[in-house]
Design a protein around this nucleic acid. Structure first.
Length: 364
DNA sequence: AAGGCGTGGGG
DNA sequence: TCCCCAAGCCT
């Protein structure tokens, strides 16, 4: 056995499972994806919940399932509508992968979500955690579903001092779960570990006195619960200065651009923008960019109407925004459009550019 | 392995 | 204000 898992040898595993699952049966939150075990809905919820809080996900989940109630309806849905349903949730590659994987399930598996580790893991956007979550929650299979909650909870119960920021550490916890998981109810066991992490065994100031498994917890016994888990923090973020244009034509239509299908905010729409230059005034940089890149002649106002600060997980933006008018005409393409203010609502924008639009409306 | 990839909320 | 977090995955 792994040296990190010696505590398990002296655990009463049956009692641990029972205490944990009984607590979950009593205290679990009433969440929309817990209404049934439809593998499709479990799948959608697990993708949405990646790095995202329950409270944030709930309204998105309800709307998404209403719009796309089944594999077949999502598989045949218009890409732009699917992306719009994800607008504001972040990590947009999740929805692109989900849409693509759902199409694959429809074509290759007759619209039935695979129920084997190999099958489920082959789907785009389904990694080790999500595979285990779907297999255990939707299909009752005793597979580990190790997320941040599970690593935090088990690092405390089993006194595991490995750095959970290291990718290789997940395997230690998967092995632990394989030893601990209830074969009678793997679904509740996995969900209970995560629910415990969310409600009781929280990152800071865990509620040990309310914990249903504190008798089984080595960290509680030693008083080390606030020192665990060990997690090295990553380095600070870089900063980028942008200049953007809120450009309208003579009919008042607004110029928007679709971002590339890879990288940051892929496939989302934006107001034309470019990184600032040290050498030239932002207004001049924007003017040149619109002419060179889109062959658009513009008259840009002398002073900007807004400066938007936006923070991502790995970088920050400051966007200085200028209003302007097109002089001539544009050739519209699939990635460059002129739209009315009403039509803007049909396109998915990142939050940073939603801020631009709000500032513009206040200004005019 | 390590960095890219969003957003909103809490201490 | 700043830093960290929240049911990770991909390259």
């Amino acid at each position: 056995m792994n040296e990190n898992l010696k505590i398990i040898e002296n655990m009463n595993i049956k009692a641990f499972q029972n205490d944990l699952i009984s607590w979950f049966e009593r205290e679990q939150r009433d969440l929309p994806w817990r209404k049934d075990q439809d593998p499709y809905k479990v799948w959608v919820s697990e993708i949405m919940l990646q790095q995202t809080k329950v409270d944030t996900v709930i309204p998105y989940f309800l709307n998404f399932i209403e719009q796309f109630p089944s594999i077949d309806e999502l598989a045949t849905a218009d890409e732009e509508k699917v992306l719009k349903a994800w607008e504001g949730l972040g990590y947009y590659s999740r929805v692109r992968n989900l849409h693509s994987a759902v199409k694959e399930v429809k074509e290759k598996y007759e619209s039935k979500v695979p129920d084997t580790p190999k099958g489920i893991s082959s789907l785009k956007g389904v990694g080790p955690y999500t595979a285990g979550a779907i297999l255990s929650i939707a299909y009752g299979k005793p597979e580990p579903a190790v997320d941040g909650n599970v690593m935090r909870v088990l690092s405390r119960i089993l006194s595991i001092w490995e750095d959970i920021a290291k990718p290789s550490t997940r395997k230690v916890f998967e092995e632990a779960v394989r030893l601990l998981i209830s074969k009678e109810n793997p679904s509740y066991f996995n969900q209970a570990l995560m629910e415990l992490g969310a409600l009781i065994c929280t990152p800071t100031s865990p509620s040990c006195l309310l914990c249903p498994v504190r008798e089984h917890c080595h960290a509680f016994e030693e008083g080390t619960q606030t020192e665990l888990p060990v997690k090295t923090r990553k380095k600070s973020v870089k900063h980028v200065d942008l200049v953007a244009g809120l450009i309208v034509n003579k009919e008042g239509k607004i110029l928007i651009h679709k971002r590339p299908n890879k990288g940051l905010l892929a496939d989302l729409w934006e107001f034309p923008n470019i990184e600032k230059s040290q050498l030239f005034h932002p207004r001049r940089v924007l003017e040149d960019f619109l002419l060179d890149e889109y062959k658009i002649e513009t008259e840009i106002r002398t002073s900007s109407f807004a400066k938007i600060d936006h923070v991502f997980s790995h970088l920050t933006w400051e966007i200085e925004v200028f209003a302007g008018e097109m002089v001539g005409k544009v050739q519209e393409t699939s990635t460059l459009k002129l739209v009315t203010a009403e039509e803007l609502g049909e396109y998915a924008f990142p939050v940073s550019h939603q801020k631009i639009w709000k500032e513009y409306q206040q200004m005019i």
